[in-house]
């Protein structure tokens, strides 16, 4: 309520976006270049058990004497591939259904929206657990489970926007020159949706990372020797009392950092794409 605020009024999304991109790109590079970055294998004993962080082993070693840094950079590959494939799955299905539902309207629209809304309000991790439990815990099913639970996120957004765009004049114009429905949806509506899809994608990627890590923490992602951050944490639970903090701190930090990177990108993009100027 102070009546005086001097200088720059509001931070632009630029800072958030840059910070997010730096975090995400760094983590992607680390995992892609894992072989170059670390000399150690992520699944072989490389030294004593439970060595605290040191120059030799920056993130320490675990019970089996594996290098935690190696496990984490290689683990990034698991996390990133699950999350990227899953979000592509939910994005394509959600966008397609949302576009059709919004464009066609009527009973189909009402039915689909109702189902999607019902899924949307359901606790996502519980649904993901149930799906992987039924399909069996492995990496493909983790992708399917995470892919399914986030379909409504894209559906709702795309449907809403489609309704708006459909009402606008240029769609009328396209129709009057005889463009068919499919063409209108793909050529005229879809391009207009891209900015919003981009924002939803980055926020959703953050959610998907946390869900993947949650599944892995509960033991429903990849089978044990393969490194995966969430799973490392489940192992770490046993060492609270022994004080082997590095077994817990680093894997969880990576999950949080990566999720935060995407959330920052989402926040920045939101600011940039719909700038609300303070008058």
């Amino acid at each position: 309520m102070k009546s005086r605020i001097l200088g720059v009024f509001k931070m632009r999304g630029g800072g958030f976006l840059a910070a997010g991109l730096i975090i995400v790109i760094t983590i992607i590079l680390l995992s892609l270049l894992a072989d170059v970055i670390t000399p150690y294998s992520p699944i072989k004993r490389v030294g004593d058990s439970f060595i605290p962080p040191s120059w030799e082993h920056p993130f320490g070693t675990n019970k089996l004497g594996m290098d935690m840094f190696a496990r984490i950079v290689y683990g990034g590959r698991t996390v990133l591939s699950v999350v990227i494939l899953a979000t592509i799955l939910s994005m394509s299905i959600g966008t397609a259904l949302g576009l059709i539902s919004g464009y066609v309207g009527g009973k189909l629209d009402r039915g689909l929206s109702f189902i999607m809304d019902s899924i949307y309000v359901f606790p996502s991790l519980i649904l993901a657990i149930a799906i992987t439990a039924v399909l069996g815990p492995n990496i493909i099913n983790a992708i399917i489970a995470i892919g399914i639970i986030y379909i409504p996120t894209y559906f709702r957004m795309v449907r809403g926007q489609t309704l708006q765009i459909k009402a606008s004049l240029f769609i009328e114009a396209a129709r009057s020159i005889g463009a068919d429905s499919l063409r209108i949806m793909v050529k005229y509506i879809l391009p207009n949706l891209l900015p919003t899809i981009l924002v939803v994608f980055s926020m959703n990627a953050a959610d998907a990372i946390l869900t993947e890590a949650g599944l892995a923490f509960l033991g429903y992602s990849v089978p044990p020797p393969t490194p995966d951050w969430g799973f490392e944490l489940q192992v770490g639970v046993n060492y609270i009392l022994s004080g082997y903090w590095w077994l817990i701190f680093f894997p969880g930090l990576m999950v949080t950092l990566l999720a935060m990177g995407f959330a920052l990108i989402g926040e920045g993009l939101t600011d940039i794409l719909n700038p609300r100027e303070v008058t």
Binding site: L233, L257, A259, A263
Partner: peptide, 9 residues
């Protein structure tokens, strides 16, 4: 973005 098990542990 906090991963719950991490924060809890």
């Amino acid at each position: 973005a906090i991963f719950i098990p991490w924060f809890g542990l």
